[in-house]
C-alpha cells in the first residue's frame, strides 16, 4: 500500500503561455481535439451553444481605429492551486492532486455542473449528449484517453496520459526526467513555442525560468485562484505590455 507521504510527488506541472508569441493559429486547439478524444463541435452543437474546446484562443481587439490590432490569448484549464471548482463538487469528482494538477475523475461525476459555474475561466465542459464520431474518425480515437459518456464534466487534463507515459518510460529506461521530455498536445503543436509545458519544481526547466519574467501575470488574479498556468504579457512597440483583462 502506498502511504500519503510516498504519494507526494516531486513534480509540480505547469504551463507558461507567452502571449507575445501567439499568432492565433489554433493549432493547439486542433491538437488537443485529436489527442483527448474531445467530442466534435459540429454546426448543430455550435447552434446549441455547447461546443467543446479544452483549449480555446480568445481574440480581442486592441487599440483605437485605425491602429486596431487583434490580440490572442489561449485559455485552458488554469489548474488553480486554489481552485473554485474543487470545494463545490459534492462527490469529489474534481480534486487537486499532489502534482499541482486539478484533475477530473469521470467515474465519480454525477453531473451537477456546479464546478462549471464556479470556474471563472469557463474551461469546464459538460457532455449534454452521448458523444458520437463519424465512422471515418472512429479509428482516430486515442486509446490512452477515456471517451467520456454523457452527463459528466470534462476539462483540460494537462494531457495526463502523456505525463504518466513520460514518467513511466523514464523509469523504465533508468534515466531522470529531462525538461522537454513531456509535452502536452498543445505545446507540441504550437509552431511559435508560445505554449511551454514543464515542471516548476525543476529549477532549470523552461517554465521555471519563464516564471521569473517581469511580464508574468495570471488570469483574473483578483480572484486569488493561484493558477499553475502563467501568462507572459504581450510586448508592443506602440502600446507597451498588455496585461490581460484589467
Amino acid at each position: 500500500m502506498v502511504t500519503a507521504a510516498e504519494r507526494v510527488s516531486s513534480h509540480k506541472w505547469g504551463m507558461v503561455v507567452d502571449v507575445d508569441r501567439c499568432t492565433g493559429c489554433q493549432a493547439c486547439v486542433m491538437a488537443c481535439q485529436a489527442e483527448n478524444n474531445i467530442p466534435l463541435s459540429t454546426e448543430d452543437i455550435y447552434r446549441q451553444k455547447r461546443t467543446f474546446a479544452w483549449i480555446r484562443v480568445e481574440r480581442y481587439w486592441y487599440g483605437d481605429f485605425p491602429d486596431v490590432k487583434a490580440r490572442f490569448i489561449p485559455i485552458m484549464c488554469q489548474h488553480c492551486e486554489n481552485a473554485p471548482c474543487e470545494p463545490v463538487c459534492p462527490v469529489f469528482a474534481t480534486y487537486h492532486n499532489t502534482e499541482g494538477m486539478n484533475v477530473q475523475i469521470y467515474n465519480r461525476c454525477v453531473g451537477t455542473r456546479y464546478c462549471a459555474n464556479g470556474c471563472p475561466y469557463n474551461v469546464r465542459f459538460f457532455n449534454y449528449w452521448e458523444p458520437v464520431w463519424p465512422v471515418s474518425l472512429r479509428n482516430q480515437l486515442n486509446p490512452d484517453v477515456t471517451v467520456r459518456s454523457r452527463g459528466i464534466m470534462e476539462k483540460c487534463s494537462f494531457c495526463v496520459q502523456r505525463i504518466r507515459r513520460g514518467v513511466r518510460e523514464a523509469a523504465r529506461d533508468g534515466h531522470d526526467l529531462q525538461d522537454g521530455d513531456i509535452g502536452t498536445a498543445c505545446t507540441d503543436a504550437c509552431p511559435t513555442n508560445a505554449l511551454v509545458f514543464g515542471d516548476y519544481n525543476d529549477e532549470n526547466s523552461r517554465v521555471s525560468i519563464m516564471a521569473k519574467d517581469d511580464r508574468k501575470y495570471t488570469l483574473l488574479d483578483a480572484l486569488n485562484t493561484d493558477p499553475n498556468v502563467l501568462y507572459l504579457a504581450q510586448v508592443d512597440a506602440t502600446g507597451g505590455a498588455i496585461g490581460g483583462h484589467d
Binding site: P87, P90, F92, C109, V110, G111, T112, R150
Partner: peptide, 25 residues
C-alpha cells in the same frame, strides 16, 4: 447529468467507494 448516481451525492455514506460526500460543497 447522471441521475442514477445521485445517491453518491445525497447519501452520507461511502458505498464501498471509500469516499463520503464532500462536506465543503
Amino acid at each position: 447529468g447522471r441521475p442514477w448516481r445521485i445517491f453518491y451525492w445525497i447519501t452520507p455514506y461511502d458505498f464501498a467507494r471509500g469516499i463520503f460526500p464532500n462536506a465543503r460543497s
